[in-house]
Design a protein around this nucleic acid. Structure first.
Lengths: 350, 350
DNA sequence: CCGACTATTGATAGCGCTAACTTTAACAAA
DNA sequence: TTTGTTAAAGTTAGCGCTATCAATAGTCGG
């Protein structure tokens, strides 16, 4: 008679069998509960869930994937590796992906690139869904392409929610409204505004928020004080130079993002204007730059990390549902922004 | 008589069995070759390797990890989520980790935090190794702690290689030497230098590079032109303000990082000095800021992504070797930096 | 030339989970 | 009662890989 071989249970972790024993059912039933399949009586499900909780059981990922539960693979596309929000996006994304047991790949998608080829390559390599941060979330061509391919996609911070894709955003309009209201409350009346890159639809929203806030306050908008920028430092600096060269110059400038606001500060300094003594400057986004420069910028913070987490949650959920033959329905969520008051604002000079 | 069940081979991918059949051996032998175990005759190994290549076989990760090859888990610690290099570090790290089939977790390690508790928690949760970017790579206490715990760690860009941990770095001394040589070649003689945060040892290396380059060129160093900074924009601005207020002010300033260099530019602009017309400013690191502001900074680029990849490669290698009972020996590699010439330098004013 | 020994290779049995199929239970219809 | 029908739970058989042990071939001294 042979000796039985040595068991080689890997970790001390409980398995489906342990749970099954405790819940007095078969491992298969436990598996069904875990995967939320139908065909489990309510009381059985409760018993199994209790056992899972008691043992602090967590399914072994390798085993599931080996047994055929195909893993969800997501691609996070980016354009500019030094975009300030990318780090937070990655951290949030990786976190959510590992929590949901999805595989996340990061892929660069440059401006000039053949996007169709890239998407096809990724789809062919088994990518089930895409996360698109700005400015890709505003790339109509890309969105149309993804729609045509019936690919799952989740947009982060798009100006307007594309009906066919899910999206996670903040209320840019309301945030700009709030910021303007704040600047008005400081006593400013001549307020300059620098519009962002017109290709990104948040630019229009932020401008609308500014306009409506002025309107609400009954302060007429001097169109000369509204300058076009393109979200770059340089464009902010140039726009501010124009504004500050006017004979009746603004006492405050609200730039549609932090880079441009930093450019405003630089322009002001070149003209020997003190910020915030002679000029209030406010930004938008709370990127690293906002708290790097001096004075640190008063701005609006977007909860980037949380947005990434939400995007991945919803995307994974959507893909899982579709795999269970449920109809697809893109979800849109709006998260709260935060007003960050720092050192670049103050009352108008007397 | 029963019908045989449906096979459920998952993907079209070849398996060990396919390789074994082609190489005319058992799957076990294939496995041995894959894992580099000893005890396989040379000609057998060659045959198996050929078969692997022919079939373009890649082992199934889930199956291996299920079968007991324990996965390597690494933690990348960071302090400041908006540190400019973090994105590149993450991208490089994720890439390498997924290529090597290691699991990477990203963990924040704040300044005030109880590092011992954090490390213990991570170790307990099965982390096998740590990646430490600056400034953690210079945190003597943390390094000593890791050494005490006999944890694997890989430092990124530390000033001096800790003997007990591996490290990936560039030659900061040589880079500073090169930059200084470049500034000298432009014709500058009165060159200001802003030292970085003294707690990070790269600061001393960069200073030494500057000094030696001046020495080599036979240009005496005016100690008044060497100012202490702390790697922040504000400190760079203040230091530059002092330098530029001198009656015989420098015609060039070499700041030990980009944030400080950006501060220098701001200080110069406030004094109505043109950069580079009246003042040359050079930075170090090529962070996003360097190409955000105007004028864009001439600086030194560190190959951050590549450094992260190397760090993970070496760390995984070290851990694998130790698991095969080989002695541990920390490896240090030095990668090439790049000199990036942009718009912030020029000949001294006449 | 034989047994002891070593270097290779092979056979077997899982790792933890789930797809596919079978059985049992439960109940309505005939 | 018998039979059909369906819901719920159980059985079986792997997924692709490797640890462990068994077998085989080759080596060497006596």
């Amino acid at each position: 008679m042979k000796e039985p071989r040595l068991r080689r249970r890997q970790s001390g972790r409980p398995t489906v069998n342990d749970v099954a024993r405790l819940a007095q059912c078969s491992p298969m039933t436990v598996s069904r509960v875990i995967n939320g399949s139908s065909g489990v009586r309510e009381d059985t499900r409760v018993a199994v869930e209790a056992a899972i909780k008691e043992l602090d059981y967590a399914p072994n990922k390798a085993a599931r994937s080996l047994a055929g539960v195909s893993q969800i693979r997501l691609a996070l596309l980016y354009v500019n590796p030094s975009a300030a929000y990318l780090t937070e996006l990655l951290i949030g994304g990786m976190d959510a992906a590992s929590r949901l047991d999805a595989h996340l790949v990061i892929e660069r998608c440059d401006v000039g690139e053949d996007k169709e080829a890239l998407i096809n390559k990724l789809t062919a390599s088994g990518i089930d869904g895409f996360i698109l941060p700005p400015p890709l979330s505003d790339d109509a061509e890309l969105l149309a392409l993804l729609r045509r391919l019936r690919a799952h996609a989740m947009l982060i911070g798009p100006g307007q929610a594309a009906a066919h894709h899910g999206a996670v955003m903040i209320d840019d309009y309301q945030a700009a409204l709030d910021m303007t209201k704040y600047i008005l409350a400081l006593g400013h009346r001549r307020i300059g505004f620098i519009i962002g890159n017109p290709a990104q639809s948040v630019s229009a929203l932020r401008l609308a928020g500014f306009r409506d806030s002025m309107l609400n306050a009954g302060v007429p908008v001097d169109e000369a004080l509204i300058q076009q920028g393109e979200f770059t430092y340089r464009s902010g600096m140039d726009a501010a130079a124009k504004l500050l060269a006017m004979k009746e110059r603004p006492t405050a400038i609200f730039a549609s993002n932090d880079d441009m606001a930093a450019g405003c500060v630089a322009a002001a300094h070149r003209m020997r204007l003190d910020v915030p003594g002679d000029l209030t400057v406010c930004g938008f986004d709370d990127t690293a730059l906002a708290s790097t420069i001096w004075p640190e910028l008063t701005t609006i913070r977007q909860p980037i990390r949380e947005m990434a987490e939400n995007a991945i949650d919803l995307l994974v959920q959507g893909i899982r549902l579709e795999r269970q033959k449920q109809p697809r329905k893109p979800r849109h969520v709006s998260l709260d922004y935060t007003f960050i008051q720092r050192e670049s604002d103050g009352p108008p000079p007397v």
